[in-house]
């Protein structure tokens, strides 16, 4: 029906304005990090009960990628920040 995400740039907006990508905790490995690291990055996802950080894109607003920390049980939102503040790329080549 409705829920609001407090975009740090735009203020509270309904979820319809956003696109969810998924786990923001995973770090893109270095190109030579090896099969296991890449396999984990591309395919393995935790499905935590409780606090979870996710990438959300404010698609119909400021078009910034955000990190939304929310509770997967209660849907309570603990914080929303710009994704650029916590880059998801590990060591670059």
């Amino acid at each position: 029906m409705a829920s609001l995400i407090a975009c740090p740039h735009c203020g509270p907006r309904p979820k319809e304005e956003f696109t969810v990508r998924g786990d923001a905790g995973i770090i893109r490995p270095a190109p030579d990090a090896g099969e296991d690291a890449w396999y984990a990055y591309v395919y393995l996802r935790d499905n935590p009960r409780g606090r979870h950080k996710e990438h959300w894109h404010h698609t119909s607003g400021c078009r910034r990628w955000l990190i939304v920390e929310r509770d997967t049980v209660t849907h309570a939102i603990y914080g929303v920040s710009d994704a650029a503040g916590a880059p998801s790329q590990g060591e670059t080549a």
């Binding site: 203020g11 907006r13 119909s60 607003g61």
Partner: peptide, 18 residues
């Protein structure tokens, strides 16, 4: 869903929204 009330959204304010 943007609150367009004059006190919250004064002249000159912009919002990209659905």
């Amino acid at each position: 869903a943007v609150d367009l009330d004059r006190t919250k959204f004064p002249v000159g304010r912009s919002a990209m929204t659905l």
